[in-house]
Design a binder for these strands. Sequence first.
DNA 1: CCCCAATTTGCACGCGCGTGCAAATATTTC
DNA 2: GAAATATTTGCACGCGCGTGCAAATTGGGG
Lengths: 335, 335
Amino acid sequence: MTGLNESITADDVARAAGVSRWTVNRAFKKDASISPKTREKVMRAAEELGYVPDLRAAALASDRSNLVALLIDDFTNPHKLVMLERLTRALRSRGWDTLLVNTLNREDTGPALLNASQRRVDATILIGIQFDDSVLAAAHSARRFKKLIIFARTSENPNTISIAVDDAAATKEIAEYVMTRGYRRPLYLAGPRTVSAHLMRKETFQEFWQTHFNVTPDTISVEAYDPALAGQTLTEELSGREREAYPDIIVCENDALAIGCIDVLRHHFDLQVPRDIAVIGFDDVPQAGSPNYRLTTYRQPLTEMANYLVDVLESDETTKLDKKFLGHLVTRESA
Amino acid sequence: MTGLNESITADDVARAAGVSRWTVNRAFKKDASISPKTREKVMRAAEELGYVPDLRAAALASDRSNLVALLIDDFTNPHKLVMLERLTRALRSRGWDTLLVNTLNREDTGPALLNASQRRVDATILIGIQFDDSVLAAAHSARRFKKLIIFARTSENPNTISIAVDDAAATKEIAEYVMTRGYRRPLYLAGPRTVSAHLMRKETFQEFWQTHFNVTPDTISVEAYDPALAGQTLTEELSGREREAYPDIIVCENDALAIGCIDVLRHHFDLQVPRDIAVIGFDDVPQAGSPNYRLTTYRQPLTEMANYLVDVLESDETTKLDKKFLGHLVTRESA
DNA sequence: CCCCAATTTGCACGCGCGTGCAAATATTTC
DNA sequence: GAAATATTTGCACGCGCGTGCAAATTGGGG
């Protein structure tokens, strides 16, 4: 019930239960070789003393921590909160703990990786946007990572496992939709250039449009996945144009950008969405479904992806673990 | 540069540098007693071999992990993302790592706490909403927590350290503002009952109104800090009323609720904010400033609070560590 | 160049548990 | 009920580093 000592160890429990220390630890391990009644006796004593196994020591001894580091930096994008929820849920419900590392700024990616490696995590997951391949290469060559997983983003780095939506397929579906609905003057709004490069959404869209209409659609890029900044960037872009030169649809690399666009279209330019200009996003963040935005967007199968990630953690394979997922277009009223 | 061996230990570096293992570890410790030139020699060798100290072993040996657990459950509230950013930033920039624990559901609070204790974290921080005092009491009596911190929420539990905004002062400021601006038929929209009880915002507001106008304002509560659910609850409430019985302002326990309200007021009831009904929130989430909401709200000094939290972690005091902060009202157009 | 104080380095022991095997029990078979 | 097999239990050693102190080294004054 109560424990007066600062820390109760397996030895204390062993003494109380009249067994050896090893038997105590066995009792706490899932399918260990131990008789039911010994286990119960041990558990009772443990309960009494308030003992729980020390995972630090277990990790040290077994060189397996059941801990992953999650590196993230893009806190202005509301989608990140959804990703955090899905990932931590999948991980925790299957016995994995998560070390959340805030990559404070671009220069901090290296130190953040180092930080993770010092905790000897079993895997490092990147869901941020600021890392580039040189950092990954350096990290890998230092051989400090058992597994380096890029989540929700593809990567060309061969030492990395990428778990992401099939951006090409998704973008084609979006482009197809845009075309079918009769839009002819799209403006593509991309995120930070380095990140966009990983996504290939912009390129895929442009290519599609080029193929079908023989023109490259206008494209601008926002320096962060931040609704406010997206609004600002769009405002600057449109302010330099005649009303007739406005696009009929803004295709956004993700919802964070799309939401910022809708806000300024309505409140700065006094336009209606989709009547005057339509908007389409990517991710299907919670707000996208609100009566205020009714955003047409593309939903990634995050839960499935998160579960696959845990499969990867628990797998011994070291190759061909990359996987692309298919999501689906959620059509609402914004486009 | 490259390391062929699976793991390089301090012994390897010691051998390479021609010193003892202890000297190697000393070289990595901030103000350890070591001569500059020995340290450099060691560091060079470490660099060469790709060695970094193993924090698991260090934690085990010193019984100090520089790790805190952060328990969270309220992922529908966008403010949580802001809190995560501020907390992880403050923690990491001062050398602390964060274990993010998703409290999967109400029954999971106990297991989540257990989880943290098995990692022997130096402190556990609660920023979720589902915990109740019985769980905290149980956790404390098991003496498994060096420090149990409730962040952004007050707590009556004496074994707990609460770092929060002064809700009474904040709510009074809000109430004062509501009164001064001439609103006379407020509707108070509270969050889940158990959480509201911790905040005392509802009670403070009611008391204020009772004192000044001798009536208790209408109050309804939403079962989660979820914009969509808030909208739904408000819709049900207003649908049962005549147009004349509508409130002139909706005072929300936080921005998540306020945003949900604004959405349905506009899009379901076709009302204007603030002309027909005003709305006021709490937290100042990023969206609150968007041209779409222009939400009047109360901003907590999160950065300051996060830094104080780290002070608490680094303090040896065990008493009187609770602290209340003052924020300020951010007036925009919604009220 | 010697002596004493200040600085720097080395070390025994322990942190709590995992691994793999050998010893001790329990269970089955005929 | 004895022998053979299956199950359960105990243990030596190691995981990588911290603590506190003792030994070794350095530097400066006379």
